[in-house]
């Protein structure tokens, strides 16, 4: 990039409204001497973040060491400090580990699939002509832009045992192809975590791959055509070109996409809440488990706070790992 953005000279002589010894002038000198201007400019945003993010976060941390719930709000029972009781309750609850397992396995399967589908579509978009490329990317972005609630309801109906199109179609296929299960009334949402998350994985990937594809497309456009051409002349096939040239050059973008996908797929709640619905506890993921514990009746904000902190810490580990990897290979410069 050209380094020519140097035209932001402030006018040197500002018309003075007051004398050099005035309070206003002294304040100005103070700010300049201590280099406070950047902090002052940041202050409004920081105050905003502190109010809407840091204070709730502190509250959650406080609750997590209390027995805080509905009876404490209505004043029937006193609020008490309970030490690490909420955390030990969580860690000794087998349902917690089951939910964690569901969340981790889902992310392990969905993230690579998402990146794979996104990559294939991204490469395709890069090679398509202008009209077709616009058509494909518009179609993909419509999936991305569909609100998750609408998309979840749509999938819920498609996979419904009472006349959903997927069950209907499977029931009409020959047994040698789809097995002898009674597909006509097959309940994907409640039959078990594997079935439910298969359905959710299709939904989540369908909605998330366009972002991957378009982001990669932007990266692909920056790769000089000479590089791939030279590789082809040297006899490299498409796979080799991708592995030796495209992927290494796009690695920083892949890292971002990986991190974001992990966070998103680990976090999914809307889709699982609508499709699985509360009550099928063996299919809960971590977010549903937290919701059920925090807001089920009677609600326990203490337990919910502890869970939210645990959840945030897990995501923090992912992030720290990512930042370390990025620094090591010089992406963050």
């Amino acid at each position: 990039m050209a380094q020519s953005i140097r035209s932001d000279h402030a006018p040197r002589s500002v018309p003075r409204l007051s004398g050099p010894g005035s309070a206003r002038e002294r304040l100005r000198t103070f700010i300049r001497r201590h280099k406070l201007a950047p902090y002052l400019l940041l202050a409004p945003a920081l105050i905003g973040i502190a109010l809407v993010l840091l204070w709730p976060l502190a509250q959650v941390a406080i609750y997590s060491f209390q027995n805080y719930g509905l009876a404490q709000i209505t004043g029937v029972l006193p609020t008490q400090w309970v030490g690490f009781a909420n955390f030990s309750t969580t860690f000794t609850d087998p349902e917690f580990w089951l939910s964690l397992r569901n969340s981790v396995l889902f992310a392990v399967v969905a993230v690579p699939l998402n990146l794979l589908v996104g990559t294939i579509v991204g490469l395709l978009l890069n090679r398509l002509g202008k009209k077709m490329s616009i058509f494909v990317s518009t179609a993909a972005l419509l999936a991305w832009a569909t609100p998750p609630v609408s998309a979840s309801v749509l999938f819920y109906w498609m996979f419904n045992p009472d006349g959903g199109i997927v069950d209907w179609a499977l029931a009409r296929m020959p047994h040698w192809l789809v097995g002898s299960t009674d597909w006509a009334g097959y309940n994907w949402a409640t039959n078990g975590p594997v079935q439910a998350y298969t359905m959710i994985a299709i939904l989540v990937i369908w909605q998330a791959f366009p972002f991957v594809a378009v982001t990669l497309l932007a990266g692909l456009k920056t790769i000089p055509a000479e590089l791939t051409e030279a590789a082809r002349v040297d006899g490299a096939g498409p796979w080799r070109v991708f592995r030796r040239i495209t992927f290494p050059l796009l690695k920083p973008i892949y890292l971002v996409l990986l991190l974001l996908s992990v966070i998103w797929d680990f976090n999914i709640f809307t889709q699982s809440y609508i499709i699985i619905s509360l009550g099928n506890q063996n299919e809960y993921n971590l977010s549903m488990y937290i919701y059920d514990k925090a807001f089920g009746f009677p609600p326990s904000y203490g337990l919910g706070g502890a869970l939210a902190l645990i959840f945030a810490l897990i995501l923090l580990v992912v992030t720290v790992g990512y930042v370390r990897a990025s620094i090591r290979q010089g992406a963050l410069t």
Binding site: V52, L53, P56, L57, Q59, V60, Y63, I73, T74, G75, P252, I253, L255, V256, L259, L260, I263, N267, I290, Y291, A294, Y301, G304, G305, A308, F311, A312, L315, L316, T319, Y322, V323, S326, A331, L332, T333
Partner: peptide, 30 residues
């Protein structure tokens, strides 16, 4: 690649905020 860092930071902030803000936000009844 400053894009990388800011996008990552944004992602983390959004994720953490979502987790935390869901739990807080209960006033007290008079």
């Amino acid at each position: 690649m400053t894009f990388t860092r800011s996008a990552a930071a944004l992602g983390v902030a959004v994720a953490l905020a979502g987790t935390a803000a869901g739990i807080a936000g209960c006033g007290s009844a008079s």
